[in-house]
Design a protein around this nucleic acid. Structure first.
Lengths: 138, 138
DNA sequence: TATTGTTATACTCTATAACTATA
DNA sequence: TATAGTTATAGAGTATAACAATA
């Protein structure tokens, strides 16, 4: 069975690849129950303590409304905390808890393992090339 | 604001790229009201008339249950028809209508235009490299 | 007036399970 | 018993709009 025009479409290949990569990520981090979006949120807060919700949402391309629920869940799990902002009473400063910092190190180790799966799948050099080509989207 | 570990993750870049590419596809084909998944279904049926629903679903990595609704919509729009199979009364042979064939040519012209947008965004050679790297996922 | 976080709604997509009619 | 198509449901993800508190 032929795919005809789909073979020449970057979007089709990228979509299939993205599905594979997310499935592997979810499986590799299943023991800590962290999904790709959760990982991106915890990582960005860990690297930039004190950010507002609006700033995180904008940087990661997530809707503000969706981030509310993501943070609710992460806060319940004691990984993240919302601290009242000192300068703007509308906004929250986001921080990792001590437990969040500790867990993040574990998440990163597992994410690195996932990344090795990617390298095995498409080749180490191809993975590097891919990151270079798509650097403008990060 | 830094992304920390996210910068080195292929999955993050691929996800952001995929969102961009789908948005451009949807916008470029808005005049004919065709989304990426619909395009992939019509294209595969056009290139392989007579396929069963199960075969299309498996080839494109779509759930059988979801394909039912996709085909309902495409059939209502007179682009696709379900023909009773001659050999297996459980299954349908999928075909494009005459109108479907005609419309598909228009879809392909617009999809090619979208593909040029991709080439402009990441560069012609990078697009080629990307297709080569991800060929194993099609 | 505009922005922050929140709530609510709707629609798409994904993942299942179960049903029917066939094989 | 297994498979093809269908129906139904639940959970993510996306896209909006609107609201209260605050700037």
């Amino acid at each position: 069975m032929g795919l005809d025009a789909l073979v020449g479409h970057a979007g089709y290949a990228v979509r299939r690849f993205q599905l594979w990569i997310f499935q592997d990520f979810i499986k590799t981090l299943a023991a800590v129950d962290i999904r790709p979006t959760q990982y991106s949120v915890v990582t960005v807060i860990g690297a930039n303590p004190g950010l507002t919700q609006a700033a995180v949402a904008k940087r990661l391309g997530i809707e503000r409304a969706r981030l509310v629920h993501l943070l609710d869940s992460l806060e319940q799990r004691k990984l993240v905390k919302r601290v009242p902002s000192a300068t703007d009473r509308r906004s929250h400063a986001l921080h990792l808890t001590a437990q969040g910092e500790e867990q993040l190190r574990k998440f990163k180790r597992l994410a690195a393992e996932h990344e090795r799966h990617v390298a095995e799948k498409i080749g180490k050099e191809n993975r590097e090339r891919l990151l270079q080509i798509l650097a403008c989207f990060t």
